[in-house]
């Protein structure tokens, strides 16, 4: 009896054990560095943890109720929406265009692939510094160049939409390669026969792209949009370096506002409540996009 049991366990049992063991570090890491801090964040959000006033642990939903009437928060949500929507659209469009272009290019120009990846490797703070100087008229070579012809390039960072534009540009510059990579991988997964079949079926290049390539890229496009959108909810380094949330509060996105509440205003609990809201937003979007993705791919 014991013998047969041992025999049954056999190789697959050991394999399974091995696989589980392989997962252990990842599970531990998730529990320790994601779930525990997340639980802490939720707990804080339902408290009145304040560095100056002291802490009241019985606070219930009051942080969330306060959020409903917080005009600065509302403003930050609009700012975040503008930065995210424009940024993600630009990144996905430019990333896809470059990916499609690179795929068609043959010969020596293929080195371009590596070149286009570079912006993704630059740390965000450095990216922000680069674009801050490009958008600062007294420092920018762009302004210097146009000054030669007596053309004054306006200062972007001192107007509301100019500053949003500038941050979107910086964010797009550093993040479009991510979209490009994913689209390149997706394009590789599309059999070249399909394009040829479409060509024979009488489709022009444009119509082939619209009717064949694009629909086949949809899952990848959805995925990048989701990833970039969620990541864009965490907007911080660009704002911190380029505008400090200005002019006024024009680029104070929600994550930046949470930082102000936590670190400047000492209101750790309210900052946590905002973070919880951002987290739930991201989770909600992920869930819906995952469902949408399923519908598209099957």
């Amino acid at each position: 009896m014991g013998n047969t049991l041992a025999a049954r366990r056999g190789a697959t049992y050991e394999l399974q054990q091995g696989y589980r063991l392989m997962m252990l570090p990842a599970v531990l890491a998730v529990v320790l560095f994601a779930i525990v801090p997340l639980a802490g964040m939720f707990a804080l959000a339902f408290s009145d943890y304040h560095l100056i006033r002291g802490t009241n642990w019985e606070f219930g939903w009051r942080n969330f109720v306060r959020m409903l009437s917080d005009k600065r928060l509302m403003n930050s949500v609009y700012v975040m929406a503008a930065l995210s929507v424009f940024g993600v659209i630009a990144q996905v469009l430019i990333g896809s265009a470059v990916a499609v272009g690179l795929q068609k290019i043959t010969g020596r120009w293929r080195v371009g692939r590596v070149l286009f990846l570079l912006p993704y490797a630059v740390p965000h703070v450095a990216v922000a510094l680069i674009w801050l100087s490009l958008f600062t008229p007294t420092l920018s070579p762009i302004n210097a160049f146009f000054d030669l012809f007596g053309v004054t390039v306006p200062a972007f960072l001192t107007s509301q939409w100019g500053a949003i534009f500038a941050i979107v540009v910086a964010d797009t510059w550093t993040n479009f390669p991510f979209a490009m990579l994913i689209i390149m991988a997706a394009l590789q997964g599309i059999s070249p026969d399909l394009e040829e079949a479409a060509a024979i079926d009488g489709a022009t290049r444009v119509r082939t792209f619209i009717h064949i390539t694009l629909p086949l890229l949809t899952p990848a496009l959805l995925m990048i949009t989701l990833f970039r959108f969620i990541d864009s909810l965490k907007h911080f380094p660009m704002i911190f370096v380029m505008t400090k949330g200005g002019p006024g509060r024009s680029t104070q996105a929600t994550n930046y506002y949470a930082y102000v509440q936590t670190f400047q205003n000492s209101n750790v609990a309210y900052g946590a409540a905002i973070a919880v809201m951002l987290f739930l937003t991201a989770a909600l979007i992920s869930y819906h996009v995952a469902k949408l993705n399923q519908r598209v791919t099957t």
């Binding site: 059999s191 026969d193 399909l194 040829e196 079949a197 479409a198 060509a199 024979i200 079926d201 009488g202 489709a203 022009t204 064949i212 629909p215 086949l216 949809t218």
Partner: peptide, 20 residues
């Protein structure tokens, strides 16, 4: 002439059906 203008139809080894 472009492939689509030759009045030909082609069947591929991979079938090349549009999966979507």
């Amino acid at each position: 002439a472009a492939p689509g203008k030759r009045g030909l139809a082609m069947v591929f080894q991979s079938y090349a059906l549009y999966p979507h």
